[in-house]
Design a binder for these strands. Structure first.
Lengths: 139, 139
DNA sequence: TTCTTGACTTAGAATTGTTCTAATGTTAGA
DNA sequence: TCTAACATTAGAACAATTCTAAGTCAAGAA
């Protein structure tokens, strides 16, 4: 789903499309590195010097509630975000703290709505380890 | 792996088995509800009134580094812990914030050591939704 | 036994990440 | 243009975690 399509969907659903919301969603499309709130905030501050952290948090929550972005709780005590909402795995590198996209096919949960009587609303398949970049460095 | 076996392994590896460390690991065996640090801390405080949060954090990290317990980053901004380290899924209920164990068979990642050139050290398959208990309540 | 050393624990301060609050600004519709 | 609802802002408040410095403890050496 493209940025344009998401903006259109927000509009359709009656969500006010402020300049800040537009900028935040756009930022996620231009930075596919799973940025943290801090990264998003400081980057946007260069362009919109008065943007506040509350707006960044509010907007990320709003977009997440619309199902247009994905919240990632892979790193302890810190949120990352991803504009790609198609199911895919995330890999977190312990050394450099980067988050990578990983494609894993054949997940038995794909398409499942229920498990053990619980209603499945979101899958967060995380993998922790050492990334290829960090493996190259000695240690 | 039983509590006894883990205590023996710690001992073997030259890790000092203090009363606090023993109590924390034991607590996890007696409370299989994936407690948070706060829950562990306040429960232990009833028995060991002077135990400090730093000790709880240090011990949980130590046990986790030994691979004897598992850190769960399913809830945003808050750690949960599990003494069961055999691979299994965790389900987090958005409404009551409880963490459940879920058995999912046929995970294509089971036993894999590498993915996309990254070294896999730990799997954290999380599922978010509404649990069976909360589904019963109206809403 | 006493001393020493290193490892562990403690209380509380500091830090970090997130949420809240009250004031201000903006928008869309009457 | 007016109004009411909604959005943004700055910074305070809060929550979770980490850090720090002092105190405690256990084991081995003298």
């Amino acid at each position: 789903m493209s940025l344009k399509e998401k903006l259109a969907e927000l509009n359709e659903k009656g969500c006010t499309l402020t300049i800040q919301r537009h900028a935040i969603l756009e930022y996620l499309y231009e930075n596919r590195t799973h940025p943290t709130v801090e990264e998003i905030y400081y980057s946007l501050k260069e362009k919109f010097s008065t943007i506040s952290k509350a707006t960044v948090y509010n907007t990320l929550e709003l977009l997440s509630n619309y199902g247009l972005i994905q919240e990632i709780t892979i790193e302890k005590g810190k949120l990352h975000f991803d504009c790609e909402v198609k199911p895919h795995h995330h890999f977190f590198c312990r050394r450099c703290n980067r988050v990578y996209d990983v494609d894993v096919v054949g997940c038995p949960l794909a398409g499942k709505k229920m498990i053990d009587g619980h209603k499945i609303e979101e899958l967060r398949p995380y993998i922790i380890g050492t990334c290829s970049e960090c493996l190259k460095k000695k240690g």
